[in-house]
C-alpha cells in the first residue's frame, strides 16, 4: 500500500522531530551528558551554605567553570557540597571556595579563588579553605551592637 508507506515516513519524521527537541533541551538546557562527563568532582565543607541549590554556578573571576552537583549535611552539622568542574580548569590545592550572591537579591553561587600552591587538585579532592555565606542579618545586627559598645 502506497499510502501506508507515506504514513510510516511521516510518523518517522514526527518521532525524529520529537527526539531532536528532547535532545536539544537535554544538551543545551539540562546539560545532561555534556558537562557532566567532561568534568571532575571536588568537594568542600561550609559552616553555612545558605541559599545554595543544586545546579548553582561555580565561578572564578566571574567566569562559570562548573556547577553544583549535590549538597548535603555531614555528621558535624556542616554543609558538604560537591561540584563538577570543567576539565580544562586547574585549581591549586590552596584555592578558596566562597558562597557569594549575584547582585543584592540575586541567587547564590560558589566563588572560587585561585591559590598560590603549584600542586593541583584532582577529582575527589576536598577544598580546605572555605568562606561561608555572608548572612546580611548577622552583619547588620553585628554592626548595630558594635555601635552601642
Amino acid at each position: 500500500m502506497q499510502s501506508y508507506r507515506k504514513v510510516e515516513v511521516i510518523v518517522g519524521i514526527f518521532v525524529l522531530v520529537g527526539v531532536l527537541s528532547m535532545s536539544w533541551m537535554a544538551i543545551k538546557l539540562g546539560q545532561i551528558g555534556g558537562m557532566g562527563t567532561s568534568g571532575y568532582t571536588l568537594s568542600a565543607t561550609f559552616d553555612d551554605a545558605g541559599g545554595l541549590r543544586v545546579g548553582a554556578d561555580v565561578m572564578m573571576a566571574g567566569v562559570s567553570i562548573g556547577r553544583l552537583s549535590s549538597i548535603a549535611l555531614n555528621d558535624d552539622s556542616e554543609a558538604v557540597i560537591h561540584m563538577e568542574i570543567q576539565n580544562d580548569v586547574h585549581l591549586s590545592t590552596d584555592a578558596i571556595a566562597a558562597v557569594r550572591t549575584k547582585g543584592i537579591i540575586g541567587e547564590r553561587y560558589v566563588r572560587m579563588s585561585q591559590g598560590a600552591d603549584d600542586a593541583v587538585l584532582a577529582s575527589g579532592d576536598e577544598i580546605e579553605e572555605t568562606e561561608s555565606a555572608i548572612n546580611i542579618e548577622d552583619l547588620i545586627s553585628k554592626y548595630i551592637f558594635q555601635g552601642k559598645e
Binding site: A26, L29, G30, Q31, I32, V54, G55
Partner: peptide, 8 residues
C-alpha cells in the same frame, strides 16, 4: 543556569 536535568 537555572534548568537542571531533574526539571527535564
Amino acid at each position: 543556569a537555572k534548568v537542571i536535568p531533574m526539571d527535564l
